[in-house]
Design a protein around this nucleic acid. Structure first.
Lengths: 258, 258
DNA sequence: CGTACGTTTGATCTTTCTCAATAATGGTGG
DNA sequence: CCACCATTATTGAGAAAGATCAAACGTACG
């Protein structure tokens, strides 16, 4: 059930899609001391205020970034999928400014923080690759601000669904037009700045309109075009490179930004 | 009125606060071909969808990052102050995913993008410094998501005021407890995901409660402690290094994350 | 001195939240 | 395999924060 041979393979593949890495750079990454760790659902990988000792990469399962307000409300601001770096945020910052928690059972690859620091400080190409991954994540974060700040509930939820599906497909993790949403409606509410009650009503509405079909957590896109429209979704901000692509499954079609 | 000698000085100073840069690294940055450019208020530095040719650093004035939704609503997701890198987002990404627009008259230092790419790809220390600056920006972005997603209007606005003041002070750009907000109420609304009408009422309320005092765009913090409380503000996420500090002026006091 | 932009205010409307209860669902121990 | 429990999902009714619409007021500036 787990990629035992090359747990970092999806991560490295993604790095290479964005940045030019020589074989020796890859070898340097491969020679990092990696320890795999299994997580139960809901387990914290790091909490706000913690001093990180490891940087980890998500190998399997799903994980979120979140913060709590003083009033105890939770805001989820990122959803990590297998192959994502989880802890680069903390590679050079000494105190974590947010928490990372597993949504499902998950496997992460731990890399000692100082080892990774050394590598990045010695190898400019790898540093640049990490920078690029970070820039893409920042872009997704900016779109998340837009989503939560300026779209209505229907669009917010549709947008999250679209984004998640496209990112999964880009990593080859979803078959076309269907996937398992690894979140409860309450978590989806925390991701969109809504309440779970309202999320429920909106999902029901999207289903009634014939845009999606759902059974339990499984969601299928009945009308992908329309859902994109409703969610004001355009994949440009994901900065998914076109070349060296995983097989196109249907969701990924026309380029944006005409 | 302009730092003609060392336009990049505040930027480099900030980089050094986070990262260890040797004198030769500094020299390498200083030898980059920099061209100063003056901007009128409201001018675009880059638009969504543009292919960036330069990376620029804000020398003087204020600048925002923004995106538009399909319905034409605007969301501001970052406020840049002098010394901030504006275009590192685009150093390795070929299409800008958001727009950058000046709020006030401003001066930016343009650096050709490929020169900066070369430098970062050759010099790991500089690459790491840029990465760190990017990580701090991402942290601010995450807090922005929380602000817009989970705080009520009063807290959102108070939070933006607090953040802006603390960042200005950290760069030595504000005298204690008073500054000029470089935004109209409409822009503040676009930053907080509200309408300008409601922003107006909230500001009025904050003033009536004796938390702030304002005259035109100038805002003074009458009760800094209380405003922080109202805005659920805690400066930890700004990752402002404690050592080698600009003179403390009053706003920056106790460490957070107890 | 008039025009444009930004601010302020009032009245009304809508989306979304809150509170509260009920129904599914999945997992667990017997 | 079944009863029970804890989550999670669903539904309804009422409340509230914030949006919308519309107008008046200031102030800067050409």
């Amino acid at each position: 059930m787990e990629a035992a041979e090359q747990p970092l393979a999806p991560f490295v593949r993604d790095l290479r899609r964005h940045a030019a890495l020589a074989d020796e750079d890859i070898a340097a990454i491969a020679s990092l001391p990696v320890r795999l760790r299994k997580l139960d659902p809901g387990q914290y990988i790091i909490r706000e205020g913690d001093a990180p000792t490891h940087c980890c990469i998500l190998v399997e399962g799903y994980v979120i970034r979140q913060k709590l307000t003083g009033e105890g409300a939770r805001q989820i601001m990122a959803l990590c999928i297998p192959g994502d770096g989880i802890d680069f945020q903390n590679i050079f910052l000494d105190v974590s400014d947010h928490a990372v928690q597993s949504l499902t059972a998950a496997t992460v690859a731990d890399i000692p923080r100082d080892e990774l620091q050394d590598l990045v400080l010695k190898n400019a190409a790898i540093g640049a690759a990490v920078l690029q991954a970070t820039l893409v994540e920042a872009s997704i974060l900016r779109e998340w601000v837009v989503n939560v700040g300026r779209r209505d509930a229907r669009a917010r939820i549709a947008h999250v669904l679209c984004e998640f599906a496209v990112r999964l497909e880009a990593r080859g993790l979803a078959t076309d037009h269907s996937f398992e949403l690894p979140m409860t409606q309450e978590q989806l509410a925390d991701a969109t700045g809504l309440t779970s009650v309202h999320v429920n009503r909106v999902l029901k509405g999207l289903e009634a309109e014939g845009l999606i079909w759902r059974r339990r957590r499984n969601i299928q896109f009945v009308d992908w075009r329309a859902l994109q429209q409703v969610g004001d979704f355009s994949r440009a901000y994901l900065h998914i490179p076109a070349e060296d692509h995983v097989p196109v499954r249907g969701l990924i079609d026309a380029p944006d930004f005409g």
